[in-house]
Nucleic acid binder design. Structure first.
Lengths: 341, 341
DNA sequence: CATTAGCAATCACCTTGCGAGTCTGCTAAG
DNA sequence: CTTAGCAGACTCGCAAGGTGATTGCTAATG
């Protein structure tokens, strides 16, 4: 593809992102001042259409980028501007306070993503089975129940009420035992081991009880990730200008309310690299009208932005990248600190 | 207001709830078989309109209930049908599992409310300052930070990372001290006391440190309540048939995303009684097109349904009442159990 | 061979007008 | 107090017609 065609494709995507309307050969000529005529541009547009980069909304409309066109744009034509000082400042400021609670931190991160991009910001909690056990506490609540609190590094706290008739002193003993023998273990591995065989040397009465407890505590849905979203209002506002917004918004909400499907939609954002999923590339059909820019910030926690395919990728990508780096830094600091301590 | 007028008002509200259209004198005559003519009904409708119970959409349309009309309907004319066996069963079944984690429990409750009513279900977490302290744990994370885990009865767990340079053994000592002296105290009172003066007898070095810690732990935003919502999709679907759905939905989402405003909207649902807030009765302007049916299920935790003013109050009220009672039962059982233990 | 000008054809979008249907208010009679 | 009958008001849906944007095509140009 020659330089002029690339330029034309870029301008079509650019202009369509900004205006939301089909882009005509005229427009490109006027706004971006090429030194050729509109007919030439039309010829190039035909070429681009044949290769599947752009399409027409109807037989004689201007051109609209296809998913393939966006993909090419993002991969080859996107010019990442550095985030404006002002926004960087806003982000740093927002993170200056608010480090006391992980959920607040992630919640705020989602909010930042949303408000700075004007789309839907989301943060998926890290997978607790990827983190290491820091501390276990067992608290007697009633004759039949105890509360188990499980603290991993990163300050992730998981608690559940488990049925047990063991007396208080025994629970305390078990708690101490568990803390001594399991501290620093990666929870996922622990779960896997426990599923196969009891830990070695665990044979007396107390440790058998302990074993039963730990199994209840660690095995079930440990990998469960919570999803925080913010800025749904932004997203719906953009959806409303489409045709059949009712149906679109409904489908969107259904996916968002079903965490498992959303997880599926993220695909393997498992690497640390920033990932874009554009329109129909998404494995979840309902999300075909949207693009996702996402980033793994550690421990399989994912953060990102979900917006219309027609969004300002430059802004969204740089914002996501920046916020992702900040969050990763904050988390690895507390992680590193935990390792020294 | 004589019996026939009441009946007519009831039928207007009834019919409008079911069909969503303005109700004509004809319709009432046909569907509900009164033994008078449509002209008589028209006269009564005029009466009802003058008193502000119903209104016209335009100069010669059928009648639509006003907020005052709905209020009268809900307060005096509503016939509560017992919840269908099938639905009761579904609720009991849903609660049969899933008692391990409070957040899951509340999440599921919101989901139940939403799916059984077809509107938006919400659950506001109990206020932790209304509950009693069960257990405190302090865990060293790094040289400069510790994780404080605070467990109240009901199994509510609050954790935060606090800056401290105290060594591990000392933290443990402080933890033990705190558990002994503060166990069973109501957290809200505790916070109030601490704000005024140190606890008596706390004078040596260890307890001073402990005091500083507890202040950090308990004072700030302890009363903060989290909001779980489900079924936004349902609600939006109904909004879409209105005029200017874009604007309406946007305003709705803005309120839902801002917990403080939502709290304001609930007003004082502080009693245990079921409360209805209909349309313009709501202090939050943006929610005027909606009604809220809510219920305090204990410790200032609120659960309920938000739907269009035109909703099936009979179904919604009985569902909310039933689910509220179930949840209250579940929570008071674990509370009572904790008290025995 | 790439580029250009000019022109007919296509199509969305907006406005307008019309007809059918619905419901009320009013008046006068029962 | 109730009823019948009727004019007037208004919605709703549909079709027609005008406007403006944009393309593809063809033939001419450098």
């Amino acid at each position: 593809m020659d330089a002029r065609k690339r330029l034309i494709l870029k301008e079509i995507v650019d202009h369509h992102i900004r205006t939301g309307r089909a882009v005509s050969s005229q427009t490109i000529l006027e706004k971006y001042g090429l030194s050729v005529s509109s007919a030439t541009i039309r010829n190039d547009m035909k070429y681009l259409e044949q290769r599947g980069y752009i399409r027409k909304a109807w037989s004689s409309s201007g051109r609209i980028p296809t998913a393939k066109g966006y993909r090419f744009f993002v991969d080859w034509l996107l010019e990442l501007s550095e985030l404006a000082r002002k926004q960087q400042h806003a982000i740093l400021e927002a993170y200056a306070f608010q480090k006391q609670r992980l959920d607040e931190l992630l919640h705020q991160t989602a909010f930042l993503l949303a408000s700075l991009t004007g789309h839907l910001g989301f943060v998926l909690t890290p997978r607790i089975d990827q983190t290491e056990l820091e501390f276990i506490a067992l608290v007697k609540l009633s004759p039949d129940h105890a509360l188990a609190v499980l603290v991993s590094d990163l300050g992730i706290v998981e608690s559940r009420i488990i049925p047990t008739t063991l007396p208080e002193e025994q629970l305390e003993k078990i708690g101490n035992l568990l803390n001594r023998s399991l501290h620093g273990r990666r929870l996922g591995e622990l779960a896997a081991e426990l599923a196969e065989s009891p830990l070695e040397g665990w044979s007396d009465r107390v440790t058998q009880d302990a074993f039963a407890l730990v199994q209840q505590l660690i095995t079930p849905q440990l990998a469960r990730q919570r999803l925080y979203t913010e800025g749904l209002a932004h997203l719906l506002q953009t959806v409303f200008s489409w045709e059949d917004p009712i149906e679109e918004a409904r489908k969107l909400l259904c996916v968002l309310e079903d965490e498992s499907r959303f997880l599926q939609a993220l695909g393997r954002t498992r690497t640390g690299e920033l990932t874009t999923i554009i329109g129909e590339e998404n494995p979840v059909k309902e999300l075909h009208p949207y693009s996702i820019v996402s980033l793994n910030y550690g421990y399989d926690g994912v953060l990102g932005v979900l917006g219309p395919v027609r969004m300002d990728y430059s802004k969204v990508v740089s914002t996501t990248q920046y916020i992702g780096n900040r969050l990763r830094a904050i988390l690895t600091i507390s992680k590193a600190a935990a390792a020294w301590g």
